[in-house]
Nucleic acid binder design. Structure first.
Length: 563
RNA sequence: GCCCCUAUAGUUUAAUGGAUAGAAUGUCAGGCUUCGAACCUGAAGAUGGGAGUUCGAUUCUCUCUGGGGGCACCA
């Protein structure tokens, strides 16, 4: 809620004898008031029943300009705000602050590294990576807009076992094939195929291990192929990142970190923290922290993900002076990251490390895995959404040029996808239904964009007229609800950042669009009864547009004039 | 086998221990000579089972059942 409103209600409660931290809630129904103070805690303090406490507060409270009425309902003290007063306060604030409305300065002077999506070369970029990027993009925005200095970085794993598998498959089954146009996709498919073959026939394992050794040893037999295929992958990723609006300030590659990581493993071994385990592998016994045993190096001497991750943690902080490093991965790596962070701690590494994880995307048909064939590739998904939107747009706007249609859909398709990826809390597994994602009805990015397009249409049709803005005219329930929604935005931004949870913004932007549509359908803006009311409602509409755009901006979703 | 996460309308989901569990979609019934119907209004529809803590539990604890993930050479 708007801090000014909050402060005024706090003051009233303080004067009525309530001390300490005050929390206000929203009553279940607007007829029961706009804000509520629950008296359970204060009742304990005053040694009376919550109902008595509420009555005591009511009798001591004085009304103000802003607060029209105070009414007790059971253990709650409910506040009714004056519609004109609250409208003036909120709308003026929104229009004055513009793009800066809703954000705060909580991050001033703080620096944060955000690492995402840290995907693998030689594999597909699928819908799970899309979810990662969407969450990462939004976190970058949330931090940046709230005053933090943000360093978005990426870590491409170009040197792991998956590369060996892919190159093995390529050499064994696709050696003389003509390389298709979409090379990255081709490599991804070969990787998936190789994984499957290896699973079906474990006898191939030594061949893959040999290739892994060749790669790590920069053997000339494989190095050229490795570097070339690596580049194919990276080029495509860069293209995708550009389209999604990701701006990494630095990219780290496992290729460059593995040796350093091996050095840290040697150190740990020398210090007696790590030891030689079964079969000669280097391990770290973390069982006293209930983290089992971490494997730092394979028995054949080659590295693992952990090996390079030790070096990455250190290298990331060089060149930027961040206080904290955030990394975004799937929840399946939760345990691994606990092990990694504990290992770093034992190494003496003392930076703040935060692991944000997001749930798996399950398809209606079953689990998503890049090892199996049932993946939805980002490119395919985008193409499908794009086509569907194009069909709709051409139908609605036959007079639009192809160029205009394209530039419009570029924005709409991205909005649809990014919104859909952030509908739910990051940590939750989600079930992805392509039909729903491409339906554009209800809880979708297009719904919000449509509300903005309608506001634009109204604003463009408004004629200059002699009229006086008078916020007291905004006395309809739908107008007041819309105003209260606008006021709530600050708090939504604050908690979304606190919980690392952009989905709170997503939901808010939809709720706000809904509140506007409700108002729009019941009351005419341009044909309102008086010129003054027209002018005032235009202000309300502008404010709604402003906050809708701000909230979508945090989700890195752009908007269109018309659609 | 051990550890972690999770269970809310037909489906996808929301709810710092607090008021009548909120949406979307689907179904049914309505609304464009009225600022853009990719919209709006209305109806029916949910907390997996059992115990416990509490004035009060979707929320905390235990247990059972179901789902997901992880657990030494994958990432």
């Amino acid at each position: 809620m708007n801090s000014e409103i909050k402060q005024q209600i706090y003051n009233l409660l303080n004067k009525a004898g309530v001390s300490g931290e005050i929390e206000l809630t929203t009553p279940p129904n607007p007829e029961m008031g706009d804000f509520a103070f629950a008296c359970f805690n204060v009742a304990k303090e005053w040694k009376m029943s919550p109902v008595e406490a509420a009555k005591t507060i009511e009798s001591k409270i004085k009304k103000s300009n802003l607060v029209d009425k105070v009414q007790v309902m059971g253990p709650y003290v409910n506040f009714y705000l004056n519609p004109g007063q609250v409208a003036e306060l909120v709308i003026k604030d929104v229009l004055k602050k513009g793009k800066k409305y809703g954000i705060n300065n909580s991050g001033k002077g703080k620096k944060v590294l955000i690492e995402y999506p840290s995907n693998n070369t030689h594999k597909e970029f699928h819908i799970g990576h899309l979810r990662n990027v969407c969450i990462g993009n939004s976190l970058v925005q949330l931090y940046e807009q709230n005053g933090y200095k943000v360093y978005p970085v990426n870590y491409l794993n170009d040197f792991g076992n998956h590369v060996a598998k892919c190159l093995w498959g390529l050499q064994k089954f696709h050696k003389d094939e003509k390389v298709p146009e979409n090379k990255q996709k081709w490599l991804g498919e070969i990787y998936a195929e190789a994984s499957q073959k290896l699973k079906d026939n474990p006898d191939f394992a030594p061949e893959v291990a040999e290739i892994q050794k060749q790669i790590e040893g920069q053997d000339s037999k494989i190095w050229k192929l490795f570097m070339q295929t690596r580049e194919w992958s990276i080029d495509k990723f860069e293209e995708i990142f550009k389209q999604l609006g990701v701006k990494h300030v630095a990219v780290f590659y496992e290729k460059d970190l593995k040796d350093k990581g091996q050095g840290y493993v040697d150190d740990l071994l020398q210090k007696g923290i790590a030891k030689v385990g079964e079969g000669g592998a280097i391990i770290l016994d973390l069982s006293e922290y209930k983290l089992d045993i971490a494997l730092l190096r394979k028995s054949n001497g080659t590295g693992l993900y952990m090996t390079s991750d030790l070096a990455l943690a250190v290298e990331k902080f060089k060149g930027c002076y961040a206080d904290e490093s955030i990394i975004i991965t799937g929840t399946e790596q939760n345990f691994y990251f606990k092990q990694l962070y504990k290992t770093l701690e034992l190494m003496g590494f003392d930076k703040k490390l935060t692991h944000i994880s997001y749930g798996l995307i399950n398809l209606k048909e079953g689990k998503m895995s890049s090892r199996l064939g049932n993946v939805i590739l980002y490119e395919d998904l985008y193409a499908e959404v794009y086509e569907k939107l194009k069909e709709e747009s051409v139908q609605r706007h036959p007079e639009w040029s192809e160029k205009k249609i394209k530039s419009n859909i570029d924005v709409l398709a991205m909005a649809a996808l990014k919104f859909d990826m952030q509908k739910h809390e990051a940590a939750k597994n989600i079930i992805f239904d392509i039909k729903e994602a491409t339906s554009f009805e209800g809880f979708s990015g297009l719904y919000v964009l449509y509300a903005i397009a309608r506001i634009n249409s109204v604003l463009n049709q408004a004629k200059k007229l002699k009229a006086k803005v008078d916020y007291n005219l905004l006395n309809k329930p739908e107008e007041k609800q819309l105003v209260l929604f606008l006021a709530k935005y600050e708090e939504v931004v604050r908690t979304a950042l606190l919980n690392y949870n952009p989905s709170e913004i997503t939901r808010y932007s939809f709720d706000l669009a809904q509140a506007f549509n409700d108002f729009y359908n019941k009351h005419s803006i341009l044909k309102a009864e008086t010129a003054d009311l027209v002018a005032t409602r235009l202000q309300l509409a502008s404010a709604a547009k402003n906050v809708l755009e701000n909230s979508l901006g945090l989700l890195t979703i752009g908007t269109v004039e018309e659609m």
